[in-house]
Design a protein around this nucleic acid. Sequence first.
DNA 1: CTGAAAGCGCTAACAG
DNA 2: CTGTTAGCGCTTTCAG
Lengths: 352, 352
Amino acid sequence: MGSSVQEPARGARGRVTLQIIADALGVSTATVSLALRNAPVVAEATRLRVHQAARDLGYTYNRGAAALRTARSDMLAVALSDVALPDHAAILGAVEDTARAAGRTILLGTTAEDLVRQEQVLAMLREFRPDGLLIAPAAGTKAAALYHLVAAGIPVVQVAREVDGLAFDYVGSDETLAACLAVEHLLALGHRRIGMIGGAEGVSSHRDRRRAFCEALQRAGVPVDCGWLLDGYGSRETGIAGMGRLLALKEAPTAVVCVDDLTAIGAMIGLARADLRPGRDLSVVGCGDAPEAVAFEPQLSTVRAHHAAIGRRAAEVLMRRIAEPEAPPERHVIPPELVVRASCARLERIAA
Amino acid sequence: MGSSVQEPARGARGRVTLQIIADALGVSTATVSLALRNAPVVAEATRLRVHQAARDLGYTYNRGAAALRTARSDMLAVALSDVALPDHAAILGAVEDTARAAGRTILLGTTAEDLVRQEQVLAMLREFRPDGLLIAPAAGTKAAALYHLVAAGIPVVQVAREVDGLAFDYVGSDETLAACLAVEHLLALGHRRIGMIGGAEGVSSHRDRRRAFCEALQRAGVPVDCGWLLDGYGSRETGIAGMGRLLALKEAPTAVVCVDDLTAIGAMIGLARADLRPGRDLSVVGCGDAPEAVAFEPQLSTVRAHHAAIGRRAAEVLMRRIAEPEAPPERHVIPPELVVRASCARLERIAA
DNA sequence: CTGAAAGCGCTAACAG
DNA sequence: CTGTTAGCGCTTTCAG
């Protein structure tokens, strides 16, 4: 009962394949394949005929089939905790951009900062045989979880965070510099009682910021009060709670640096709840430069990480690594910059 | 020079395949395939042996190969303008979540709201043979651009925006209700001079909000002043500029609804630049409920769209559509809700 | 410059 | 319950 007339020929699944084009033209699939990829070996005339026929018949290349044959899928897997985190979203956007420009597509997986989910996601992504993996490891990720992948032949580059004891490529912001910029800004404003809110032990970037924060203070000969170091995963809640605790102290700091902008905004909200105002009653500096940073009133002074540059670079490094698996691992640390806005004030102007 | 000893056997590419497992166990690949997928037809004993061997040998399933055979890739393509837009990020996160839970992965493409780039992205995504496509069409997308895809056999569901003249599945927020909620809130506060900032002609959701905005005013018998309807793509800049223009009018509105929260925040910034304050000198209501909405001071009253629900539903609809290509198209319109915060005030309290 | 043939890793009939 | 066989759509020697 099927129609059997002048319909253009089709493959078993009703799709146009190389074979169909080859038949239509009376050439071999090999020739069609070569011609479509513009291999210099085919005659210009046939090349044109093939391209024309492909267009006429409505051919679409099947990368899956090619991948099976060549063991290259042209897919880059990206695993991160949450696309809604402003930092990760910005990085992801840049990664997709540069991957696409290179003819590759992104396979996305999110881990929700959960180790077992991360394990599942990675296992799943692997089954699709991406050419490489870009990952912002979930908090607490152990080296084995990733080593595993390279052992299986899939190159991994870490972005934004790194697992220690792992000599893999890494692209991220210079967290040490970030903390120094923040601290030096506050120091320059005359602050000496400086606290820090936020920082999760399992996240390398947090750890680095925290460490550099302490070191910068020590270098300046300013004592670090442990009661002013409040940890917690970066979030608005962490900031609100942290500021609450700080303000309850008999001797509160006059300035705080926050592990990220979400936390900083939380801290400012916490301040507002105590009827205090950032940039007048207490100085707050963030880290990252999320979109919220300018939206808040007063606008948040922060250390801007160049997410787009990081994402772009990470994609580039991964593609290079795919091309050259044996090259020595690279570390790319992009310097952030201080953005002074309105959330800090000179110590003298602050009511101690 | 290669090692040729007790290394477990490997395929041509040094990978463990069904064949390797089959050989190791002295069974056929068919049995292994069936066993790994827990087909009830295989004996429990062999099922176990196969699973064990697979684990021992370090087997990983090759979905690409399976896809070639079955014509199902287990990939869902997602195309949207920009992952950094808060609405899109939230939707994407939910989509990834529900896709993953169903054993599928996301293939991501971004269009930057550019029609030719969108065309390229769609062409590229197609080559990977995703089982379906979820798209927030770029502004100005014509029906043909998408019709094309379904004709090629890949189911499409539109999310957040829709192209008109296209009887495809659609999942989005109820834009009409959104605009009504915003307008009625302002009306209830006593406002009669109400403007609207933002709205791009090519974006269905914007168009719908705009239209419903006007209708809601007319229904209330409140005249709509065209000079108070300012279009523009949703962004902070649009909001700032729009508010600037409104304030320059001889007779400015006492309240504005903005096409989205980014624009609303822009509008509030514009107000601040004129030394005015939202919720005191003028009422502002947004649309979407972006994270920035609570960060801003005063916090933005807005109409919350349930992005997570929209993303989840969209993924579900797509998967259902894949299973049943011929079912009639569905429209899912998720009702938003008004979130009253601090950016609006009663007319009486506003200096006209 | 073009064709024939083999095979990537998997699944789906169909026999046994 | 298990094995045989035949491909999915492409690329790649290797001959001609």
